[in-house]
Every structure is written in C-alpha cells, then in structure tokens.
C-alpha cells in the first residue's frame, strides 16, 4: 500500500467516507491494479470509474484520488488497500 498511497483523508458525511490520494508517479500503475481487482467496474463517461471490493464501493478519479464509501474506519480501509495493492 505504501508504494501507491500518498495520503488518506477522512471526508465527512452520513457514512464514513475516505479519500485516498495516490502517489503522483504511481497513479497509472495503481489504477491498473484497481481495475483488475474491483468487481463490476463501470466507467461513467470518463468522469470516474466505480467498482466493488469486498463489498466496499470505490470511486476512482483520473486525478489519482479514490473515494471509498461506507467503510468503518481507517484501519479497515488500510486492510482493504493492502489487499488490493499487495
């Protein structure tokens, strides 16, 4: 995970949402990884992509930011990111 992730930001809302910021030089590589790991991946007109990993929704933006929705806490998020990027 450390290879790809630069920063994790907690975003406020009804559900616990997080924004994962990817390392600039690893964005393309990380997005390819995500595309291969996420289920039901849909590209929304080039605006963003959405897919599911272990029941958690991930929204991928071309800026290298990932909105992760409905996750309990940062530790769970890190566990998921470690699985995706391991």
């Amino acid at each position: 995970m450390e290879k790809y992730v630069k920063q994790i930001i907690k975003a406020c809302g009804k559900e616990a949402d997080y924004v994962v910021v990817l390392k600039m030089d690893k964005v393309m590589e990380a997005i390819e990884r995500l595309k291969s790991e996420l289920k039901g991946l849909i590209d929304f007109g080039g605006l963003y992509m959405k897919g599911i990993f272990n029941g958690i929704e991930l929204n991928i933006f071309r800026t290298g930011k990932i909105l992760v929705k409905g996750i309990e806490n940062e530790e769970d998020l890190k566990r998921i990111l470690n699985k995706i990027f391991s």
Binding site: A11, G13, D17, V19, L47, Y48, N59, F61, R62, T63, K65, L67, K69
Partner: peptide, 12 residues
C-alpha cells in the same frame, strides 16, 4: 450523487 463525488469530478 454524493457531494464528494461531485467535488472530486470538479477537482479534475
């Protein structure tokens, strides 16, 4: 759309 989705699209 969730407000964060909109903000992240605009950020692009």
């Amino acid at each position: 759309l969730n407000p964060h989705q909109t903000a992240l699209i605009l950020d692009q």
